[in-house]
Amino acid sequence: MSTEAVEPASKIDLAAVGGGGGEIPQFDITLRVRRYNPEVSEEAEWEDFTLTMFGTDRVLDALHKVKWEHDGSLSFRRSCAHGICGSDAMRINGRNRLACKTLLKDLDTSKPITVEAIKGLPVEKDLIVDMEPFFQSYREIMPFLVSKGHEPSGERYQSPEDRERYDDTTKCILCAACTSSCPVFWTDGQYFGPAAIVNAHRFIFDSRDDAGDMRLEILNDKEGVWRCRTTFNCTEACPRGIQVTKAIAEVKQAVLARSM
């Protein structure tokens, strides 16, 4: 079941390539990157790169081109480059996305494409942020199975219906696109953030898990689910199409039901 948002229509006219493996169209872009190097200056600044890219290229390919052919000091994280590892979340044209899942042709290439680090976390260099506060919140909600009673001799069975209950939140890749798009998190970094709540949801609604109560207690904190203002930034930012705000609302209801 995929709930992923449909990508906007291409803004570049890619000529229909007739029949046998034709040429891939090329175009020029300006990549405007937010550079920051604390060893040189405390101030971050924009730097423009003009690149000739292919119609099949992604923002990550443009960053590679800069790093490999123009300026080797450009720093960013990436690992699998296929939208699964969650390393290359960044703010592209003001929106949090994965650089490896954003095709250049889907962006407005008539204007410079801005690329900056995700907000709300301390920038270490260029596009690299310190993810530690993000993982700290993640650890606090105990993202692992806790079960009481006897260890089963085989697998822990679960009906397809019970599995379906938390299916959406199993998709999280911990890229921090949601948490760093949340205005409440930007203020002071105290809020647990959407990603931690999504991963708590994944276990709270798992029929095999017995620590739901503890997780609900943790998220009933003043920095927990009640700081969510349902602005839906997280849902829009999620590269995996998780209905994040809906998951947070379900956790709110579970906290409420537990207290009644």
Partner: peptide, 25 residues
């Protein structure tokens, strides 16, 4: 690595209780 976390992100343990939940309701 939790030792080197920027201090401003350390959460002060809040008071126990349901105040925020009651306020929300």
């Amino acid at each position: 690595r939790s030792g080197r976390i920027d201090k401003k992100y350390n959460r002060v343990p809040g008071k126990k209780g349901n105040f925020e939940m009651v306020a929300w309701l």
